[in-house]
Nucleic acid binder design. Structure first.
Lengths: 245, 245
DNA sequence: GTTCATTTGTACGTATGTATA
DNA sequence: GTATACATACGTACAAATGAA
């Protein structure tokens, strides 16, 4: 958008700086002038400069750190792939009508072993819920799932038993937090004997272990989920589309 | 995150208001107190109140309009996730300096068994290339990879041996085609005996099989890749970020 | 329809805190 | 430890938009 006469000052400043970054006057990796210098250059107050820089930060054009100044960062857009929400639903793999049968639910302190499995800090307390996910008409569960829920959001545990589908929307609705990032790790494991019996597969067969970490806009881990799927019943599938860079 | 003594004031105010919105003290559709009233209630300046409200706006909990005030809005379930190019690179799992050592390369007709594994039509001809991917200094390969390349693009086979990294950019560069879609399926399998020896793991251990299908803008399958990773050496990792929508 | 008062948006100046080179 | 640059915070003022008299 071109800066018009009616644009607020901070948008005009943001527009000018953005153009200069794109034009290479401030190349990637270089320092932007200090806020004070920008105030002088544009003859505006620090408030206006900071509002302008905030816009550029929101667009991931710059990062700022005390004392270090403001840095122009590389653009990550070109030739990227995007995955839309349908693929995510696919990823969630919650078949319609699949019920979650809770087997155990309690507050738990992360020990060294669990820290390894979950990536959570040792000694912290989390609501641990374990159970099996089962389709309405199926003879056997499709997977075993462990939830580790931040104690701040432990209240969702009260309604888990009468809830189907992903759990993190519950956290979003009950606490007004947004899950902005889902990190996912997939590994191949051998089926544990205790799970094998309950899932009705042989111990020592292959299984897919999917660990998801849900992070809020405050950079706080809201929930970690670990699902163990018998290889014979699960295939992780997704489609990535290239989007305009 | 619970408001701590060290949190800035605007975060404390934001946290309190967020909780009160969630608790229904300010239900969806209701007006939040005016900024002036919030200043008095929390004994902070308007700057602090506005920073707090900005956070709530960024999380789509409220909207503000001049004169109309600040409104608590219903949570929108919308919002897709996107995955950026960094995560894709991660997904490609091409360690710097990892070489591809070709073991076999020949034109091949898809039989019933291969059709099952690759998803390609029986009876069609493809350039099949098999090999191991190995880091410079590693004693053992990180994975075994099979490429099935559309015969139309079989010319890339000539330069595969002196190429590192993903193969599909070669197709894009050599033939001016664009890969617009990558479909990916991940399954857990048991390590095949013939691969186990070469990868230096025990047969019957867990392995991650990643199959990728690369499709051009003409809806033509350019390439199918099947990689078999020993579970002990590979962890499929990706991050999805929710984007405004 | 006009005017007015109210509420958010933009903008200035100043001061202090905090992280870091 | 110090100086610097961004982060937070206060107070003030006026503009713009809009709901109501």
């Amino acid at each position: 958008m071109t800066a018009t006469r009616t644009d607020p000052r901070y948008l005009q400043v943001a527009h000018t700086l953005r153009q200069e970054i794109v034009d290479g006057i401030y190349p990637v990796g270089s320092q932007l002038p200090t806020e004070h210098e920008l105030c002088e250059r544009f003859s505006v107050s620090r408030y206006t400069v900071r509002e302008a820089l905030r816009r550029l930060r929101e667009d991931n054009l710059i990062t700022s750190k005390p004392r270090a100044g403001t840095l122009v960062v590389p653009r990550t857009t070109s030739g990227s792939y995007a995955q839309d929400v349908m693929s995510i639903d696919d990823l969630m793999s919650f078949a319609t009508g699949a019920r979650f049968v809770i087997q155990a639910s309690r507050m738990m302190t992360i020990d060294a072993d669990l820290a390894q499995r979950t990536g959570l800090p040792t000694g912290t307390e989390w609501l641990a819920v374990g159970g099996y996910r089962q389709a309405e008409d199926a003879a056997f569960p499709v997977c075993f799932t462990e939830y580790y829920i931040n104690r701040e959001f432990a209240a969702v545990g009260r309604i888990l038993h009468r809830h189907n589908g992903p759990v993190f929307p519950l956290i979003e609705d009950m606490f007004g937090r947004n899950i902005v990032e889902v990190h996912q790790e997939i590994t191949a494991v051998l089926m544990r004997t205790d799970l094998a019996a309950r899932l009705d597969v042989d111990p020592g067969t292959a299984a897919l272990e999917v660990r998801r970490t849900y992070t809020t806009s405050d950079d706080e881990v809201a929930q970690v989920t670990i699902s163990t799927h018998p290889a014979s019943r699960y295939r992780y599938s997704m489609t990535l589309r290239r989007v305009r860079g």
